[in-house]
Nucleic acid binder design. Structure first.
Length: 224
DNA sequence: TCGCGCTAATCC
DNA sequence: GGATTAGCGCGA
């Protein structure tokens, strides 16, 4: 008896866990409903059999296991169709030598098992999808970090080149070293998938893949 | 009346 | 302890 309660309790817990995992709002509603509608457990009546002297006595139910052949035929029939019409039930019962009610009960239990299995499969599938998504999220976050580092390095490189350029201007004082001459010289930053064209000390253009130039101010790089 | 959910009882 | 059979209550 205790075993039965535990089995049921675990199944309910599992289902509620699934619901809480994927549908937290529905879970909270269900949990509330459960609290509001706590019903007392039903007691099952024990089977009664008529004695020879017309007295009834309570006996423990004997569960009759179906033979392998019976189960095979039932499984085949279930495989064809999960629902059981009256005619098919009667025909199966006749073929199996069972009570039509037994056939109906077997189909009912089989549908319940099938439903549980489908639920478990769906849960497993969703769990895998979720785990894959988490992995992809971490991968993308790592990629973003790497790209930020690369951007930081690129900025340092630009600053270095600007300093070198300034020192060239002050030392040579030549008209050919004006800022306009630098317009033609592109820094090769191919490894970052972009090229940058120097404009002045605080501003430069970035060419994206579509060759659309975007103006970036030096101080904007701070928060990128 | 039937199917379903729940669960006890039983088997292995 | 999991799987199976079946009783019971409820809703459609």
């Amino acid at each position: 008896m205790e075993k039965g309660l535990n089995m049921k309790g675990n199944k309910v817990d599992d289902q509620m866990e699934l619901i809480s995992y994927f549908y937290p709002q529905i879970y909270s509603q269900l949990a509330q409903q459960q609290e509001e509608t706590v019903k007392p457990r039903r007691r099952r009546r024990k089977n009664k059999v008529e004695g020879r002297d017309n007295t009834s006595e309570v006996v423990m139910r004997k569960r009759k296991l179906l033979s392998e052949e019976q189960v095979n035929l039932l499984e085949r029939s279930f495989g064809d169709q999960h629902k059981l019409e009256m005619e098919r039930k009667a025909k199966l019962a006749s073929e199996l030598g069972l009570d039509p009610h037994q056939v109906a009960v077997w189909f009912q239990n089989r549908r319940a098992r099938w439903k549980n299995k489908k639920l478990e499969e769906e849960y497993s599938k969703l769990k895998t999808q979720h785990e894959d998504t988490i992995i992809e999220k971490y991968r993308l976050e790592t990629e973003v970090l790497k790209m930020k580092e690369q951007l930081c390095e690129a900025k340092k490189k630009i600053e270095r080149l600007l300093l070198e350029h300034k020192s060239d201007i002050s030392s040579n004082n030549s008209p050919t070293s004006s800022i306009f001459s630098m317009e033609q010289s592109h820094f090769n930053l191919g490894e970052f998938g972009m090229e940058e064209q120097l404009m002045d000390d605080n501003m430069f253009f970035v060419a994206d893949y579509q060759s659309n130039y975007v103006t970036l101010w030096d101080n904007e790089l701070e928060w990128i």
